[in-house]
């Protein structure tokens, strides 16, 4: 038997609306949301930048053990996963504030073009994950020499 959970239904509706809004976003980088506050829940938050040679993905992930951080690339899909540890051994009643969320996370990102998986490099400094994904040879912009006849 499944119990009807109105909160889950609402969340499902919200996700669906977000998807629709995503498809009508006027430009990449625009984020439209059905209800505010969803972006804060997508974890970790990610910036994507591009240069001629590579894509740069940066994720805010403070307090993550780098040993448990996993970055993988398959085709055009980048997957970041890891675990943010919370304070351990602290009883609930000892907390005055608990605003930092903790737990496992997985985030998948679709890249706009092919990259060279063998040359992907990832670093973790001051709580920020930076992944540099060099573009595949054939997707790099190429200057075409104009021959003067």
């Amino acid at each position: 038997m499944t119990v009807w959970d109105p909160l889950r239904e609402l969340d499902r509706l919200r996700r669906e609306m977000d998807r629709i809004f995503e498809s009508v976003a006027p430009a990449p980088g625009w984020s439209l949301e059905f209800l505010p506050g969803r972006a804060a829940r997508r974890y970790p938050r990610i910036n994507v930048a591009e240069s001629d040679e590579a894509y740069v993905v940066e994720a805010l992930a403070p307090g993550v053990d780098p040993a448990g951080l996993d970055v993988s690339v398959k085709d055009r899909t980048l997957v970041l996963s890891g675990e943010k540890a919370g304070p351990t051994g602290v009883p609930r009643e000892a907390f005055h504030r608990s605003e930092r969320s903790a737990g496992r996370f997985v985030r998948t990102l679709e890249l706009p073009a092919d990259v060279d998986p063998a040359k992907v490099r990832a670093t973790y400094t001051d709580g920020i994950v930076q992944v540099i994904l060099p573009k595949a040879e054939e997707t790099r912009p190429r200057r075409i020499e104009i021959e003067v006849a």
Binding site: L60, S98, E99, G127
Partner: peptide, 21 residues
């Protein structure tokens, strides 16, 4: 965002400051 909790002899404050050196 911060976590603040109490231990017997102290208060502990944890704050997420990504990118701060």
């Amino acid at each position: 965002p911060v976590d603040i909790y109490e231990e017997d002899d102290r208060l502990v404050v944890l704050a997420d400051l990504p990118g701060v050196t």
